[in-house]
Design a protein around this nucleic acid. Structure first.
Length: 585
RNA sequence: GCACUCGUAGCUCAAUUGGAUAGAGCAUCUGACUACGGAUCAGAAGGUUACAAGUUCGACUCUUGUCGAGUGCACCA
């Protein structure tokens, strides 16, 4: 089905045929005094034509046929045209919405193929807070793109290759504790890595040993390869456990090592095309001076001079690095899926890296028609405003964080609802605790840093997951009660929107289909989080002033339908954020 | 030094990408508990959007400058 703005836009387009250059754009109004929707087409047009905007607005209105949808449009302010929906029109849209499986979310004009690269944990290391945002944000974007109808490839690019394996191999061969490994493989691998890493800082011989093990691994030494595969196997179990808890799946999980066979080819091809050249023993990509210096990712200003800051695609020792791997990965994804879009979800510190990779790629595959997006995000801070750490100063492990979320939620549920049996409370605590963590991550604008606060994210007041889940629970509770009273079938019947709170809720529900498609424009799930909060607040307000089960006839049918659609939109919206909605809590 | 991202109510954050009188939640204050689970709702108060110019019908948003914060800046990813 079409959204109301789309409907109004098509009417507006018809009215604007005599006004070339006008954009028939209709937007929701935030202030109810100005109606429900508005267009500023007249003002845009007036600017181009140097005409009087209010007069133009009147001319547009004269040609505009929206009588079935709105009361006569008004001209306001500098030249806004305001639309106020007729209650019958809103009711008609609501009936359509209630029948629509997509809850009013339109099918996109162009179905795209989108690769989303997110999470990207490292072998032999615990997943920690640094992985939360990428994992949760990427998963939510994938869910939203899929729901819209795009073809999505969820790609987990695992860190399974690199210099750290030299140290890990040294540790594995010299100080590995087999019992500890059996008990907690990740902790043991982390221990040996930290131990060797600390010693190699001061001891040249340790550094040399690590380098030697790494060279052997890269040369295909069977023993080292076997150990490396064992480390991968042990790590995979950890990843699967965490993704299972978070309800996250991937279509493709390929380590960096998968791309090794193409690395040399990438470098020689770049060199052959004159994109990369040798410098100080390394193969580098320098600026092609095609744009302004300040926008050039291969230049930097030092002491008032623009100097080269090339991207290395091969180190002086002959090894490739992550830029090379990223280029090989890009080429592979292009061959494999011919995507319209590849999205990288990583933290903001990698902006420069991706600007370089994308720029090299454009020179290398200049005919490729693919959008490359670096969807970056800020840091998670502790309450002190510094990067989020444990009290002892270590990074917070993701598994511990999820445990604590569930424990805290369990304590809350037990306090609020002690009569439920423990198994139910555990399940509710799981849904509420994980929901709180995810929602806290998705609510702020992704580019800003945010302060991690258990108290805030688990509060039942304000813009939190528990508040949204509670709204859903309350609606479900009404339907349970209605079923007890045999009122289930009373939902059938004419929809008549009368009370202000009913109209407000119907209007808010219709906006779901307007909000969801916007999210991918700039990869911002927080738009959905904000919408859901507004919906929940609008619902609570309706629910407070409009009794459902005590009402009768068409009024009750209307209110039950409003409740039903509210519950579906809330549950669907939360699901798009990767959050479950419990039946009770 | 240069680049990127910011600076919004006491605190934590929004603002439909240039739209109307900048919105929420905490905290503070005032109401509603014979309740479809009050885990809620209604309301009040709180602002020179860091500062200064500029662009225009209109600026938190764009431009320039200043002050302040975080991040990054060739062989780690």
């Amino acid at each position: 089905m079409q959204t109301i703005p789309t409907l109004l836009e098509s009417r507006l387009r018809a009215a604007l045929t005599d006004f070339p250059g006008a954009e028939p754009k209709v937007a929701a109004v935030n202030d109810a005094r100005f109606g429900d929707y508005q267009t500023n087409a007249a003002m845009v047009l007036a600017k181009q034509a140097r005409a009087n905007p209010r007069q133009l607005a009147q001319q547009i209105i004269d040609k505009l046929d929206v009588a079935d949808l709105c009361v006569p449009p008004e001209i306001a302010g500098a030249g806004f045209i305001n639309f106020r929906l007729r209650p019958e029109a809103l009711a008609a849209r609501f009936v359509e919405l209630a029948r629509d499986e997509r809850l009013g979310v339109p099918v996109p004009a162009k179905v795209k193929s989108i690769v989303i690269d997110f999470s990207g944990p490292n072998i032999a290391k615990p997943m920690h807070v640094g992985h939360i945002r990428s994992t949760i944000l990427g998963d939510s974007l994938a869910r939203i793109a899929e729901f819209l109808g795009h073809r999505v490839v969820r790609d987990n690019h695992i860190g399974d290759w690199g210099t750290q394996f030299g140290m890990l191999l040294v540790g594995w061969k010299t100080i590995l504790d087999r019992e500890a490994l059996a008990r907690d493989p990740i902790a043991e691998m982390e221990r040996i890595y930290k131990d060797v890493n600390a010693r190699q800082q001061a001891d040249e011989s340790v550094r040399e040993a690590a380098r030697a093990e790494l060279v052997k691994l890269q040369a295909g030494d069977e023993e080292n390869l076997a150990i490396w595969r064992e480390m991968i196997r042990l790590s995979q179990a950890q990843f699967e456990a965490i993704y299972g808890r978070l309800g996250i799946r991937f279509d493709v999980t390929l380590g960096e090592s998968f791309y090794n066979p193409w690395l040399r080819e990438v470098v020689t091809d770049l060199a052959a095309r004159g994109i990369a050249r040798e410098s100080e023993g390394a193969m580098c990509v320098f600026s092609d001076r095609s744009g302004p210096e300040k926008d050039d990712p291969f230049l930097i200003s030092r002491d008032g001079q623009w100097v080269d800051i090339p991207a290395l695609v091969q180190k002086a020792d002959g090894a490739a690095n992550y830029t090379t791997t990223d280029l090989a990965t890009l080429a592979h994804r292009l061959r494999e899926w011919t995507p319209d879009e590849i999205v990288y979800v990583t933290d903001g510190r990698q902006q420069h890296h991706f600007r370089q990779v994308f720029a090299i790629f454009r020179r290398w595959k200049s005919d490729a028609d693919v959008k490359l997006a670096h969807v970056w995000f800020g840091s998670i801070l502790g309450e002190d405003g510094k990067p989020f750490k444990t009290r002892s100063g270590d990074t917070v492990k993701l598994a511990d964080l999820l445990d604590e979320a569930e424990e805290r939620a369990f304590a809350l549920v037990s306090e609020k609802n002690p009569t439920l049996d423990e198994r139910d409370r555990r399940e509710i605590a799981r849904v509420v605790g994980l929901g709180a963590v995810k929602y806290a991550d998705l609510l702020p604008n992704r580019q800003s840093d945010y302060v991690f606060s258990w108290e805030k994210m688990l509060s039942f007041q304000g813009n939190t997951a528990p508040y949204l889940q509670y709204s859903y629970v309350r609606i479900r509770s009404i339907f349970r009660k209605a079923a007890e009273q045999g009122a289930g079938s009373r939902e059938q019947g004419a929809i008549v929107l009368e009370a202000l709170a009913e109209l407000a809720l119907a209007k808010k529900l219709a906006q779901f289909g307007e909000v969801v498609p916007q999210i991918l424009d700039d990869y911002r799930p927080n738009l959905l989080a904000n919408y859901l909060y507004e919906l929940a607040a609008t619902f609570h307000s309706f629910f407070e002033s409009c009794p459902v089960l005590k009402s009768e006839g068409a009024t009750q049918a209307t209110r039950l339908a409003l409740c039903n659609v509210s519950a579906r939109v809330l549950a669907k919206g939360l699901a798009l954020l990767g959050i479950e909605a419990p039946e009770r809590m």
